[in-house]
Design a protein around this nucleic acid. Structure first.
Lengths: 360, 360
DNA sequence: TCAGTTTATGACACCGATGTCATGACACCG
DNA sequence: CGGTGTCATGACATCGGTGTCATAAACTGA
């Protein structure tokens, strides 16, 4: 592979002049520039990043560690695909900043993380982003002091800057909108209890009920997800069955994510209930392959992954350029409710009707 | 960041000795080694890949270009997620070989590919893999002669080594299995006509019919996908409607991919037809989030993405080590049929019954 | 016209590893 | 006991760029 010396010789100038043409950091005569450019084209010269980096000590690399790519095979349970949008958001910002994103995948095995970090440090990345598969707490090995890091979709004990989804507000907004549509018996099929999002979203669900002065009925909140997929359908079926047999059954099922909603569609229909005319369904994630493809399309809450990625990358760039002190608090990013055909607004019940009458 | 000179000074040895400890390429005294290791730990020393690469001229990097990560948002139509498994398969092999995979994403824009290739060449990658979103023909800019490349899920005009899915055989195997289950009127809702896979799979469909001496009825083969999602449901609905009104309607709908199958579930059910007792459905891709979550779970053909990734990486490693001449022919990888609950074996029809009677 | 500035270019050291070669200390062997 | 090999280590050059400084030529302005 041609070097800057080859180019210099071919163009009859010094290597430094070639360097100047490459970087435009000092004036070069027109004739000289043309000669150099011609020589570069002729030789198919591409500068070596390694050599450049040695002198300047700036790699222009940002490291990204994720389980996104592999997670999809092993663990279909959790979010899966959408977090890729996180990577995409990060890519957007990093690309704009002129740096190069180096993506490494854990292959789903956390024990590989230290090795990946080591590889990145060897390449002298200027910063690091760790992307988790779903909202969770993590514990990462310590980095060298001069490599800043940002956590995306996760957080830790030691105050590493983090970017998180606003699960509480998301669920709140959805339930509030359902209530505005006349729903008062709102069932909630939650994700596994040990997931961070579950607690936050339940809180959001209760927030919305409280605001509307609707009673909280524990019988309407049940876990619909298992750690492994076998038997999950049965659990869901039972939970739905129990709720539908209540004295006042729910008019809408909120699901912990769109994947559960997909299952719920199947279960409800095999019980002969039409969505949405007889029963409404809502999801969470705005996992578009599911939400937009389902028939009818699914009302859901968007997990603002792209925005989170953008935010994470921006924070990292901020840390790298080191302008001022960064606010150490995590960034909480909310996503909008995506209102689609799987939920009908109901004729308001007695109480609401009274209200409306009053308003008229 | 500490250098090998700092470590040498701290351990009172020469830099070269530190290098020897690092690489184990020459004997070092036990006491010396301990001192060096202690110094490295003390200083938090991590060797610089850039410096190492300059001398050895071997980067240990493999470049991977993909639209996988971004494709998911823009273009929910095509395969989308599963190709990530391709990346995963590649990762597996590359990791094993001790090299580092550098992943770059096109952000869905093909015009960025030359820039990404340039970045890779600057980093002196030892080889390059291009992953396409779905089985297609591509045209890539020429690389420097000494950088080998492998195409995954795509092919080109100029004989670049490629790894492709065996669409023809996959569809054949599925239809053959359906026929074995007693189905004789097999509808096929294909993907868009301009997709490479469509032609191959149709051929596979006919292969299976021919083998079984079943007639080919063009009325049973219709395109069910549009370039944009709006109106697609309508197209599907019409196609299904037309087929179900045929004098001898189909007993099973094969869909161009699992996403279409998901739509077909919804449409069939809203027509009051139960899957699979009244009508069977099959997909393609084994897009597990859909196929395993649907109720009932979807029979489909696996697109052997992981295996393709493995194969692609192996071919690249072969090219890099340059042992012998590589076979330039594309590798065609077949995937198995995933038999799940969405297809019932039918009571055999007259002809088949006769056969069974004879066999008894 | 001449000092002072700007422009265009080159010489040279340096970044942090590793390859090559040299060297001193031992161990082994006849 | 001297010659020969092996072991452990260091000196030095080198990879391909860029930063620093020097310098010649061209251009300013009084």
């Amino acid at each position: 592979m041609a070097t800057i010396y080859d180019v210099a010789k071919a163009a009859n100038v010094s290597p430094k002049t070639v360097s100047r043409v490459l970087n435009g950091d000092a004036p070069v005569g027109d004739k000289t520039r043309d000669a150099v450019n011609a020589a570069m084209a002729e030789l198919g010269y591409v500068p070596s990043n390694a050599a450049r980096m040695m002198r300047s000590n700036r790699s222009g690399l940002i490291g990204l560690i994720t389980g996104a790519i592999s997670a999809t095979t092993e663990n279909v349970q959790v979010a899966g695909l959408p977090e890729l949008m996180l990577v995409q958001g990060i890519q957007q910002i990093i690309g704009l900043s002129g740096k190069t994103l180096m993506i490494a995948d854990t292959g789903g095995r956390l024990d590989r993380v230290p090795g990946l970090i080591d590889t990145f440090v060897r390449h002298r990345v200027e910063g690091l982003i760790y992307v988790a598969e779903y909202h969770q707490k993590v514990q990462l090995p310590r980095l060298p002091d001069d490599v800043p890091m940002v956590l995306a979709n996760c957080f830790d004990d030691v105050g590493t800057p983090a970017v998180l989804p606003d699960d509480r507000r998301g669920q709140h907004d959805l339930v509030k909108r359902l209530i505005a549509g006349g729903h008062e018996r709102i069932a909630y099929l939650t994700l596994r209890e040990d997931i961070v999002a579950t607690g936050l979203r339940k809180a959001g669900y209760r927030d919305a009920l409280n605001e509307a002065r609707l009673p909280y009925d524990p019988a309407l909140v049940q876990c619909g997800e298992l750690a492994s997929p076998e038997g999950e359908t049965q659990v869901l079926w039972d939970a739905i069955d129990r709720m539908l047999r209540l004295p006042v059954p729910p008019t809408v099922f909120c699901c912990g994510n769109d994947r559960l909603a997909l299952k719920v569609y199947g279960i409800l229909r095999s019980r002969g209930m039409l969505v949405p005319s007889e029963i409404s369904v809502a999801g969470y994630d705005n996992y578009r392959v599911i939400a937009e493809t389902l028939y009818p399309p699914l009302t859901t809450v968007e997990l603002p992954y792209t925005a989170m990625g953008v935010r994470a990358a921006q924070r990292l760039i901020g840390l790298i350029s080191g302008e001022g002190r960064e606010d150490p608090a995590p960034s909480i990013v909310a996503g909008p409710v995506q209102w689609r055909g799987s939920v009908t607004d109901r004729r308001p019940t007695n109480v609401s009707q009274l209200k409306i009458v009053r308003e008229e």
